[in-house]
Design a protein around this nucleic acid. Structure first.
Lengths: 149, 149
DNA sequence: TTTAATGTAACTTATGATGTTACTTAAGGT
DNA sequence: ACCTTAAGTAACATCATAAGTTACATTAAA
């Protein structure tokens, strides 16, 4: 199923902005993120609405970081993009009153809720400042097997 | 994002088959699951391939349970449908060698792996026999808030 | 031979992020 | 004033995949 990579992209953009410590244009961000400026604007609009960044139109315009990365957690950004559930597992129509279906859905959703709570709790613990480029950290992590998505 | 409800459907079907204790047709299952017989066959084919059920064509044909529900866990069924990741959160292209992107993806995937392990461990603990219709259990669970999916 | 069933191919639909084009608006530079 | 650079946004296409649907082949009992 198609995945939502906006969380990854927004974190990526925010950290680049923090390290550059200047305004950046959507074109620049698009090159960094491997996408085009319209997608960047669309996605960055979520950050702007939440006040984490501002934007300036016209000449010398662009995006500006308005918040220290020590004050933003993965949870904060996930909250901007995570409208629906975190899982690809769906339940069948819950307005059906078949008791078997209810028992099945209850069992599944119980587990998924527990896992979702775990994810969000972990995301709350991770500040964006902790993800800034750090040679040592990256070397440690180099061998880590990352999921395809 | 669109969800995959095959896990829910397969569990639902298996428990109905167990309780009826007879062969059932795809038409019957379709009515129980709220879908049509072709979708049922397509989905049930996963169970058949794994040997949990068998099928008979023609007159008096249909689907037969071949395994006790005490010998099947949610994990077993999830393994049949869960080709990809359990999460709607995706990472951006991992062949990019931007160290920031790597750090971001590593942080996210670390958390998701932990949560996925939790889900699968819980699924291993739940036998399908534990989901059979039980008035008492259902009454207890009635108030539980279930996810929209 | 008729009927009831699975098996399966082919196509459509639904969904939501992503990609793309084109245009509008804003603001600095010349 | 005019040009250029930038965000903002509408409109539409693309992608991926489960689900829905139609049609037909195959199998086997009545």
């Amino acid at each position: 199923m198609r995945k939502d990579s906006r969380l990854s992209r927004l974190l990526h953009a925010l950290i680049h902005m923090d390290m550059l410590n200047r305004g950046v244009t959507s074109d620049e961000l698009g090159k960094m993120l491997g996408t085009n400026p319209v997608v960047v604007r669309r996605t960055m609009a979520l950050l702007k609405k939440a006040g984490y960044v501002s934007s300036v139109k016209g000449h010398n315009g662009g995006w500006h970081l308005e918040t220290s990365l020590t004050d933003i957690t993965l949870f904060d950004i996930q909250a901007l993009v995570g409208d629906a559930s975190l899982f690809t597992i769906g339940l069948t129509d819950e307005h059906n009153n078949c008791p078997i279906e209810k028992a099945v859905n209850t069992a599944i959703s119980g587990v998924l809720h527990e896992a979702e709570a775990l994810v969000l709790a972990r995301f709350r613990e991770i500040k964006l400042s902790a993800l800034r480029y750090d040679e040592k950290l990256l070397a440690q992590l180099e061998g880590f097997i990352t999921s395809k998505g």
